[in-house]
Amino acid sequence: MSFREKIHWVTLVTMILAFGWYFLVYPWRIVASPAGVMATAGMLVPVTIAIIVAMTVATAFLAIRSPREVHAREDERDRGIHMRGTHFGYYPLVVGIWINIFLIFWGIGQAEQLNLMIATLVVAEIVRIGTQLYLYRRGY
């Protein structure tokens, strides 16, 4: 497994764990109130820190274990895989944005909008990274 593929796995697992925790622990009973926005802000701080720390530690660890691959330039296959992943990740992003637009007209609260946007971003990222990992494994 290449260095890039390992980094993709670390990113995927980190995102699922961090945002899985966020959506499980979020106080959904206050989501419709102004306090829901503060809860979102307060919980996004540890989630962001956890992702940055986990990615930094994992990248450093993997770089020490395979120093030769760290400086390997992205080749045409890497670029093709990344473009396809981004292409597939675009669809859930657009669907989520449109759902959010309709729900804003419907009159949902700010915290609900925020959480829907976060969920959209997380799903799009998981689809993007998942597609890239699939293509690295199964061929492209």
Binding site: S2, A72, D75, E76, R77, D78, Y136, G139, Y140
Partner: peptide
């Protein structure tokens, strides 16, 4: 000018090179 993994993928028929 490609990675070892790309050569492996080409050999296995998992990737069509340019």
């Amino acid at each position: 000018g490609v990675t070892r993994q790309t050569i492996a993928a080409i050999e296995q028929g998992k990737y069509s090179p340019s």
